[in-house]
Amino acid sequence: MTDYDVLRVFCGPGGRCGNELGVVRDGSVMPEADERQMFAGKLGFSETVFVDDPERGIIDIYTPTLRLPFAGHPCVGTAWLLDVPELVTPAGVVGARLDGEFSWIEARPEWVPPRTLRQYGTAAEVDSLAVPTPGEWVYAWAWEDEAAGRVRARAFPGRDDGIAEDEATGAAALLLTHQLGRALNITQGAGSQILTAPQPEGWVEVGGRVFLER
């Protein structure tokens, strides 16, 4: 069995919740894309990362059924694990930094695959949503406290790969931040926390807590 780490990314206060992430630190043990895709499907995490150069931060990201040029929680988690100032993804170079208990990345909204950002009137409406049938990728959100930038969100990838709801989704949070043009404090899923902040020239920072599960 290939060695891999399991992280929880975007954990809430006290380390609860967070989205699990698999990271294969030595990507050379599985160099072919079809091997990686099969392994990611076997692990069943919303994303699995293969590290092709730990010093330069070159990574390759897979869901259980497809390869991604960029994704938020894999970049936040892998940057924390490798302790590097940047990651190199097929989409572009992702800046990375640590600030106290939070791991941050800086990325661009145009790197994110299409998402439907669907606003609801109240957080309670978001909480009561049923998981939709596979189809479009939906980020359902509502203001908990608009003045404070606090958001309640849930994510439905719309794929038929066993991930009906994503616990914490940095890329969708990045898109929402870009659309609203302001910093956000997002509670997603069962209690994960995502922090975001717009940056100059269209960049967006996304941050959260990361814990090593095993």
Rank of each mutant, 00 (worst) to 15 (best):
T78L: 13
T78N: 14
A79N: 04
W80A: 13
W80N: 11
L81P: 14
D83S: 14
D83P: 04
D83A: 15
E86M: 10
T89W: 04
T89P: 06
P90I: 08
P90C: 05
A91R: 08
G92L: 07
V93G: 02
G95R: 10
G95H: 01
A96F: 07
A96T: 07
A96G: 12
L98S: 14
G100S: 15
G100C: 07
S103P: 08
S103V: 10
I105Y: 12
A107I: 06
W111F: 08
W111P: 13
W111S: 09
W111G: 04
V112Q: 09
V112P: 07
P114I: 02
R115Y: 03
L117G: 11
L117R: 11
Q119R: 15
Q119C: 09
Y120W: 15
T122G: 13
A124E: 15
D127L: 14
L129N: 05
V131W: 00
P132C: 08
P132K: 13
T133C: 02
T133W: 00
T133H: 08
G135H: 10
W141E: 05
A142N: 01
W143Y: 14
W143S: 12
D145K: 05
E146R: 15
G149S: 02
G149A: 08
R150T: 12
R152V: 13
R152D: 04
R152W: 02
R152F: 00
A153R: 13
R154H: 04
R154C: 07
F156C: 11
F156S: 11
P157E: 03
G158S: 04
R159P: 00
R159K: 09
D160F: 04
D160P: 00
G162H: 05
I163L: 00
I163G: 03
A164C: 13
A164D: 11
E167W: 01
A168Y: 04
T169L: 10
T169R: 09
A172K: 09
L175A: 10
L175H: 09
L176W: 10
L176H: 05
L176A: 14
T177P: 10
Q179V: 04
L180Q: 12
A183W: 01
N185Y: 08
Q188K: 11
Q188A: 09
Q188P: 11
Q188R: 14
G189C: 06
A190P: 14
A190S: 14
G191N: 09
I194H: 04
I194E: 12
I194C: 06
L195W: 10
T196Q: 11
T196P: 12
A197W: 02
P198T: 02
Q199A: 14
P200Y: 00
E201V: 06
W203Y: 08
V204H: 04
V206C: 07
